[in-house]
Structure formats: structure tokens, C-alpha cells
Simulated scan of single mutants.
Amino acid sequence: MNPRSDPLRLVVCGTDTDVGKTVVSAWLVQGLEAMYWKPVQSGLEGGGDRQRVIDLLQLPEHRWIPETYAFHAAVSPHWAAELENRVLEPRRLQLPPSGTTPLVVETAGGLHVPLTRTWRQIDQLQRWNLPVVLVCRSGLGTLNHTLLSLEALASRGIPVLGLILNGPLHADNPRTLEDLGGVPVLAELPPLDPLSAATLSAAWQKQKLGLKFRALMHRPDH
């Protein structure tokens, strides 16, 4: 990717469900002044993740893209579609144009979550071939989940920009993940009280994430 002419387009994935993908996606949308797209949404209570990002950031309409598929049940997308007698067609999950604006894509669940009975999330990532920001828990259990996820991404040749650890700061896990996973920890996002656009912005500045992303996109392999 040529960082001087092409806008940054990335995918936010998680090591598991409820690891904080939506908050991190909002964080990246805000900090990178990006557009937001969650192509597949399961669970529409409260408007789903898209509405959470819109409400959190007061995101204007031109900065978000409607889901390609939105299902009511908060279950795996393949089953949610079947419950509504609908068919999710992977060919419809084409990346939308975003012009010169960066794009943040939030996935549904973890890498091997089935979108259909024959097509998993990681299959879609391989088709998109966008760099991944992997969101992982900061505490107990994250080493196994994160290293397994990195191994799965590497086996498909999917590029990884780095990790964002979500949750209370941990004294050793960031270093261990960098040593064993071979990718950088871009940031550690502690619990924010209150969670708001202002506190996210302050955390972005403190972590110097803007500088980190500019450096990453100037690397020869990107």
C-alpha cells in the first residue's frame, strides 16, 4: 500500500466475542477520522454495534455505512440468518468505496465464526486482504486466545498491523504477546469511566496512536 496516495483501510477483529471490538473500532474511527462499517451484525437490541458507535461518537451519516446483513438474534451469523429464513451471500460483502477517507471495518465475533455453514469470518478476511488490528483481552486467558488467532491469520497470509489490549492494564501480557506473537502491541485501552468521545480522545493522545499508525503505514511491507 502506498501511504501517500491510498487511505488506510483496516479490519478490526477480536480473539473472541465481547473482547471490546466495538469500543476499539469507535476509538480508531475517531482517531483516524475514518468511516465505519460493520458488514454483518447479529443482535439488534439497542440498534446493534453500528448504533453504539454512532451514539458514542455522534458520528454523522456520511461517516458510517449500513450493514450488508443485520439479523435480530444475538447468535452466530449463520444461525441468525437461518432463524430468519435468509441467506447470507459472501459475494455481497464487497468492500465499499470510501474515497480518500480511511475505513474501519468491524467483524462479527472471532476469526472462525461461521457466516454461513460453509464460509467463516477468516475466509472473508482472506478475500478482503486488508490489514488486521486484533483486539484481545488484557488479562487471564488472552495469551492462548491471541496466539491461536495470530497463528490462524498467519496461516492464511493475512497481514496484521498489531494488537490492542482491552481491559485493566497487565504487567506482563503485552511483552509476552509481542515476544511470542511477533507483532506489536499498538495500545492498551484501560476501562474508561465515563466511556465517551472525550475520554477516548484523551486515551488516543496519551497512547500516541496517530503517530504509531503513520509509522506503520510507511513501513516497506505496507
Rank of each mutant, 00 (worst) to 15 (best):
N2W: 03
P3D: 11
P3W: 12
R4I: 04
S5G: 00
D6E: 15
D6W: 00
D6Q: 15
P7W: 01
R9H: 11
R9Y: 03
R9P: 06
L10V: 10
L10D: 05
V12H: 04
C13S: 15
T15Q: 08
D18N: 13
G20C: 09
G20H: 12
K21H: 08
K21R: 08
V23S: 04
W27R: 00
W27A: 05
Q30W: 01
A34Q: 07
M35V: 11
M35K: 15
Y36S: 11
K38W: 03
K38L: 06
P39Y: 00
V40H: 00
V40A: 03
V40I: 15
G43D: 10
E45G: 07
D49L: 01
D49T: 04
R50Y: 00
Q51H: 14
R52L: 13
V53Q: 06
I54G: 02
D55K: 09
L56Q: 04
L57R: 05
L59S: 07
I65V: 13
I65C: 03
E67M: 02
E67R: 05
T68M: 06
F71N: 02
A73R: 12
A74G: 02
V75C: 13
S76Y: 04
P77M: 04
P77H: 01
W79G: 00
L83Y: 06
E84H: 09
E84S: 13
N85M: 03
N85C: 04
V87P: 00
P90W: 10
P90Y: 11
R91Q: 13
R92F: 13
Q94W: 04
L95P: 07
L95M: 11
P97L: 07
T101G: 04
P102G: 09
V105I: 15
T107Y: 03
L111Y: 06
P114N: 07
L115P: 12
R120G: 00
I122Q: 03
D123S: 01
Q124I: 04
Q126W: 04
W128K: 10
N129D: 15
V133N: 09
V133L: 07
V133P: 08
V135P: 10
V135G: 10
C136M: 02
S138P: 10
S138I: 10
S138L: 12
L143K: 05
N144A: 11
N144G: 07
H145G: 09
L147F: 06
L147D: 02
E151R: 14
A154M: 04
A154L: 08
R156I: 05
V160W: 06
L161H: 08
N166R: 07
N166K: 03
G167W: 09
L169C: 05
L169G: 00
L169S: 12
L169D: 13
H170G: 03
A171I: 03
D172E: 14
P174D: 13
L177G: 05
G182R: 05
G182E: 04
V183I: 02
P184H: 10
P184D: 14
A187H: 01
E188T: 14
E188F: 01
L192A: 02
L192K: 01
P194Q: 02
S196D: 09
S196E: 07
T199R: 00
A202D: 14
A203L: 12
A203G: 02
A203S: 13
L209N: 07
L211V: 14
K212T: 14
K212R: 15
R214S: 14
A215V: 03
L216R: 08
L216A: 13
M217A: 08
H218V: 02
R219F: 02
